[in-house]
Simulated scan of single mutants.
Amino acid sequence: MADKLKDTLFPLEKVQLFGTVLKDVYPPFQSEEFVAAVCDKDWPERELKEKMRHTTLCLHQFLPHNFGKAVQILIAIVPKVSGFEAIVLPDYVEVYGQEHWYIALPALGELTKCGSSEFGIRPFLNKDLEGAMKYMLAWAGSDDFRVRRFASEGCRPRLPWASGVPALKKDPSLILPILEKLKDDPEEFVQKSVANNLNDISKDHPELVLDICERWQGKSENTDWIIKHACRTLLKQGNKRAMLLFGFANPELMKVEDFQLSNTAPAIGDDISFHFKLAIDTKQKQKVRIEYIVHFVKASGKTSPKVFQIKEVEMKPGVHTISKKHTFKNMSTRKHYPGQHTFEIVINGAIKASAKLQLN
């Protein structure tokens, strides 16, 4: 995906447009020289983040070296840029704003309106966590949903592709007032960030997140959506408290029978199917979460489990036949290796049946 993004987000015409926009706002800007510096002989081979940082360094050559003046120019072009240009602007503040705290932090709050400042804020969080989090808390009350989303996204303990903030991973207490402010936000963009933040926290502090979700449950439709999405990792792990929170029935009342794989010796690239019978021994409908786990063989020869959801549904008492297709085609996110793979059927967090196949 990064290979595609580096080409789609950073084509020559976007660099040229960036230079034109900067010159419109700041006439002394040498746009042609800037484009030549950015699109050097190594440009096509640079990866996504390398292109972003290279552009930032080139930009610094042609902007005023007074950080405050440079930031004023960058803020002025916010309404005119998106995509490639937008992700460079917070990076400029990250690189050159470390010694200009009271200019840099407000600037990130403005620049996030065209391209999220979630990566740019991370070094500031590591430098002065409490100081930076005061800005984050204030941004959570913004009228602009992009700024509110940044307030949550920027302090995620496990933000993908971002530098880590170990203090937040160890103790997320400074994050919680921000999430409280945003727990009933009307914007889906913000809701997803709050849920992802809580999901990050749940990986290190599951009981804390469950305490929050139990307290928030039923407050509104928005909040209920957030807590369900926030608990996705806990549900995949079969956490009993999470299962109870969302009303999933006791798995001891259910049995899996006649679990069969259509092919026990497929080749890489093949599709298989499997089916089983789910027996529900109750008098009333039950809320059921049906998943399966595949223990994939890795390049090292060891196995690693991955959970796949089949469905969540209310089911009547009795016996139900469940069928599912699974592919062993290689993907950008998963490469397959030969060896013994184990399939497990999971009902409301409990493993109920297993079968093995030999992938060739």
Rank of each mutant, 00 (worst) to 15 (best):
M133L: 14
P64Y: 02
V147S: 03
Q237G: 13
K277S: 14
D128L: 05
A2Q: 15
T264N: 01
E257P: 01
T342N: 10
E99V: 07
E50N: 00
V319Q: 06
L235V: 06
V71R: 01
F259T: 14
W139N: 05
L174P: 06
G68L: 08
L278F: 06
C39N: 14
R334C: 11
P44T: 13
Q260C: 13
I75D: 06
K219R: 12
D211W: 01
P251F: 05
D144A: 04
I77C: 01
A279C: 04
G19N: 07
F246N: 09
F308Q: 12
V147R: 02
L111M: 05
S116I: 10
I310K: 00
P251N: 05
F276C: 10
D185K: 06
G349I: 12
V35C: 13
S142H: 02
C155M: 14
G247H: 01
F248W: 03
D184K: 03
Q286N: 10
P11T: 13
S116L: 10
V38Q: 12
V190W: 02
E180M: 07
F34M: 09
L253H: 07
D224G: 04
V35R: 01
L137H: 14
F248N: 07
Y135C: 04
H65W: 08
V38S: 11
P266W: 03
A242V: 08
I73Y: 00
V95L: 10
M243C: 12
A140N: 06
P338S: 10
S332V: 15
F29H: 11
K329W: 06
P123Q: 05
F145S: 10
L108H: 02
A162T: 04
I268N: 07
T333H: 01
P177F: 08
D271R: 13
I103P: 00
G218L: 09
Y292V: 15
R149N: 09
I201M: 00
L105H: 03
E291I: 10
T342C: 14
E312S: 09
A267V: 05
L59W: 01
